[in-house]
Design a protein around this nucleic acid. Sequence first.
DNA 1: TTGTAGGCGTTATCAT
DNA 2: ATGATAACGCCTACAA
Lengths: 345, 345
Amino acid sequence: MAKNLKPSMKKIALETGVAESTVCRILNGQSKLYAEETCKRVMEAAARLKYRPNILVKGILSGKTRTAGVMIPPTATFMSKIIHGIHDELLAANYAMFLSWNDKEIASSDDDTELRIIHQLVDRRVDGIILRPTNDLVSGMYFNEIWERKLPLILVDRDIPEVSTDFIGTDDNASGVYIASKFIELEHHNICTFGVGITVNSFRERVNGFESTLSKDPAIRYTRIVENDLATAEEKLRNMIKQKDHPTAIFCMNDYYAVSAYRIIKEAGLRIPDDVSVFGFADIEHAELMSPPLTTMRQFPYEIGKQAAQLFLKKIESDATLPPVKLRIKPEPVFRQSLSKCNKK
Amino acid sequence: MAKNLKPSMKKIALETGVAESTVCRILNGQSKLYAEETCKRVMEAAARLKYRPNILVKGILSGKTRTAGVMIPPTATFMSKIIHGIHDELLAANYAMFLSWNDKEIASSDDDTELRIIHQLVDRRVDGIILRPTNDLVSGMYFNEIWERKLPLILVDRDIPEVSTDFIGTDDNASGVYIASKFIELEHHNICTFGVGITVNSFRERVNGFESTLSKDPAIRYTRIVENDLATAEEKLRNMIKQKDHPTAIFCMNDYYAVSAYRIIKEAGLRIPDDVSVFGFADIEHAELMSPPLTTMRQFPYEIGKQAAQLFLKKIESDATLPPVKLRIKPEPVFRQSLSKCNKK
DNA sequence: TTGTAGGCGTTATCAT
DNA sequence: ATGATAACGCCTACAA
């Protein structure tokens, strides 16, 4: 009977006795060209067969799939919110989103996950890619696969400095400056940073802004604890905090490290903020529930996602090669109870 | 010069002076059929042109895109973990994942987001769909679009009872039974539930198991507070808790409602668990940080996701129509400090 | 107002 | 050991 199994224009054409091109034009809104009677028959058949266009074909023909490849792990709320922003913006523009990621922290040379994912995306002819670099040592290797194909690439949250790509994230440097100024304003003179992963650009920027501000005041004693792994960092902080002249103010590279710092400070029998002030970064949910509630910087992940997707769409829909955009959204301090004026000496 | 802009088999064929079908076979691992020299030339050209196969075409030809449509909002950690499980399993099988969702709670009739998303997926010819129903009133409408095309559909977290589809989730009924038994064991005689959204099947199951167990003991006084909106539910609980004979044990439909219950109990000047015991559901992160730390049921979202994806793959890769699977993973109680023996009377 | 023909990139089939 | 051809579903020129 019906030769073709799946609904297609050909099948509609066969059933209605018109040419495929007729079906095509009617279904694509050029019905005014045709006799009302023909249109009706075609539309009716399409509805009856539950016809849906095959976008894969359009993709082949036009080279545009209205699809974005997104490589961001939804492992923390912060990241999920970025994805959320991207998603909403893409959906509004009727784009679909592939989501995939490699959540392994360490870049073992035999792990080709990133490459496999990029190939999955390229082979499906996504129009571009939005990704959050894991750290700047690894990711670079795979970027070639993207650039070689001249696919728009938008980085979020973490920039890769050596490379001129579009980037949407937080103004980390300014944040570091802000927090340092705050510590100075509160008369702290013995200060340290605490965190893991200096190969992550956002952390580096925070530290840079922070240190450059502190260094203006020669009376300040400063120690940087940003190690390659948490255990080492914790060990260092534990040792410092035991000393009589321990730091009175700690800038934690993010709120998770602040949780860790809290524990170390409390174990040493010190109080927050009376003995040690703590400033976090990111404003994760339980920052508010910590005791005392953590003072931290609130970022705008949903907004970052939205902006990233908007830029993505702009890049795609203008054929011209636009110069790379770097957008750093200013975070907002959230003052709670982990910060006070220096009580010491 | 090179006529075609993008790398393709045709282009490789042109550059190397062989036929397209030759290129095709060599690139698909049938090189032993050919002269070494030819293979080398073709491979070299492919590498030089950075050739990547166009999977869209394979999709058209084979009807298989190695792609899943996933409709789950990564709005809570629980859901992100489900997505994580699905992702890992799909990636291992070299499937790609479209992710999209409608996070509007209320089903306004002019909101066609769900339908639009399903069309996005269908039009891109996904091999099947994994989704978490928002509630059983709404989603049904759109399922037709999926069934009509005989696409495998796997439900996660929330089943839709009237419908015989594959489902992977938590054993909610057994959980309700368990918690009720626990309350009875702790000699509570005045008990209530607290939550929002009885049109959500998982909640209904929890309540069913809970109530059916309680009803075996006629000495127990029981009130169900499961309303259509949070404000109403809170109002009811607030009123109850003020009474002299307030409930001494509350089963919250999930941990978020437990947060709300905690506040109401504390505002009434009562202590947890001395005056009122609270049992949550889901084990969200800050359950542990609440004061007192919340006793709750831990679910296994990552596992749910993995199982869902495995089932998805099984459905797709066997042509036969398998009977629907319903898998309910048993959650695990996590005892912390919000639960105690009844002190009253 | 409608139809025909060719092509997009790949593969399977049937030659040579 | 290699080529030619048709087909997948859709679209665009170019007829008629």
